[in-house]
Amino acid sequence: MRFILRRLGFYLIAFWVSITLNFLLPRFMPGDPVSRMFARSAGQMQPEQIEALRKLLGVDSRPIWEQYADYLHNIVTGNMGVSITRFPTPVTEVIASQIGWTLLLGGTALVIAAVVGNLLGILAAWRRGGAIDSALPPLLVFIGSFPYFWLAMGALYLFGVILGWSPLRHAFTDGLEPAFSWEFIGDAGAHLVLPALTIVLVSIGGWMLGMRNTMIATNAEDYITMAEAKGLKPGRIMFRYAARNAMLPSVTSFGMGLGFVVGGALLTEVVFAYPGVGYQLLNAVQGLDYPLMQGLFLTITAAVLLANFLVDILYVRLDPRVRAS
C-alpha cells in the first residue's frame, strides 16, 4: 500500500510539472507566438473569447502567481479554452472525439508488441544459440533502426499504393457513419492493421532483447538450478520459474514503453492521416492553435501517467516482495 501511495504521489508531481511547463512555455519563450495566433485568427472571435484566451496563454497584466492560480483552477475544472482551428469547439471536446482512435491504435500495437516480443525473448533465452536466438535479434534490431515514420511510409507505399491491400488514410472510410455495426468495425479494423503493424515491427525488437537479457540473467539464478534439480518439466521451469521472474522488469518497461508508443503513434498517425491525438497535435502546431496544443499535451501526459499507475498496481500483484511492504 505504501508503495502505491508513493507512486501516486510521484505521478501527481509529474502531472503538476507538465501543467507548470504548459503554463510557463507561452509566457517565457522568446518571440510572441500568441500574438501571431491572434493575428491569424482575428475577426472570427468574440471579444470575451479573445480575453479568455489571452489569460490562458499569458497575455495578461496580472501578477504571475495570480495567473498561475487561475491557470491551475482552469485545468482542474477541465476548462482548457476553445480550439482556434476548430473554432469555437472547446478543446476538451476536440480531444474527446479523437483520443479513442489513439488508444485503439497505440493500445493494440503496444499489447501485440509486448506480448509477442516477450514470448520471443523467453524462447530465445531458453534456447541459447538456437534459430530464434541467432536470427531474430539482429533482424529486429535492424528493423528497429528505421525511423517509425519511414517504415510507415514504406509500408503505405508498398501495401497501399502499389499492392492496394490497405486503405491509404484515415481510421475508416469517408462517409461511413461510426456505429457498432459489423460493417463499421470491419472497416475500422482494415484501417488499423497497417499502422499498428508498423509500430509493432519497430518496437518488438526492444521487448524481445530486453526480455532475452533478463531471462539470461534469471536463468543463472540459483532457484532455476534448483527447479531443474527438482526434475520439473521444462515448460514449467521456463514459465513459472524463469519467465515469471524475468517478467518483472518487463512490466516496468511496459509503462515506459507507453510514452514511446504514444510518440510512435504520433508519427504513424501523421503518415496515415489517422485521426488520433497525435495527428491532431501536429495540425494544432501547424495551425498555431496553442490552446489545443496544450490541451493535447496535457491529455497525452495524463494518459501516460495513468497507464503507468495501473502498471504499478499490476506490479504489486505480481511481486510478493513489494506487496508485503
Binding site: G263, L266, L282, Q294
Partner: peptide
C-alpha cells in the same frame, strides 16, 4: 523520473512549436 515519464515526442513537438 519525471522527465523519463513525460511522453517524449509530444513534449518535443510542444517545445519546438514554442521556440523559434
Amino acid at each position: 523520473n519525471v522527465f523519463l515519464l513525460l511522453p517524449g515526442l509530444p513534449l518535443l513537438v510542444i517545445l519546438a512549436a514554442f521556440l523559434p
